[in-house]
Amino acid sequence: MAEFDYNGKKIETDDEGYLQNLGDWDKGLAEVLAKQENVTLTEKHWKLIEWIRDYFQKYQVAPAIKSLTKEVMNLENLPDKKEANKFIYELFPEGPAKQLAKIAGLPKPTGCV
């Protein structure tokens, strides 16, 4: 468990930096979480953050990597999965499960796969 102050509020995360209370998330906090991951958020990051949050809200689970790849192919007009994966890892070098989910304020992937 770790703690830090954000806008006068105590934010709790687990040892890996995932939010403990998903309700804490807002865009400003996403910037803070991104900084902890050494990721500088651009418009491209935000598109994926919004998409994954929307998906989680709608279906109650985080998307499969496959769905994320498909979405990226659509959003960025990329020809194939390989290009999409490259794109995702350029934005989130340590992987979407780790960094995108964390910054977007989703729970830590259960690690079953």
Partner: peptide, 8 residues
């Protein structure tokens, strides 16, 4: 509400 997950 896990029923939502069945959709996908």
């Amino acid at each position: 509400n896990f029923s939502l997950t069945y959709m996908i």
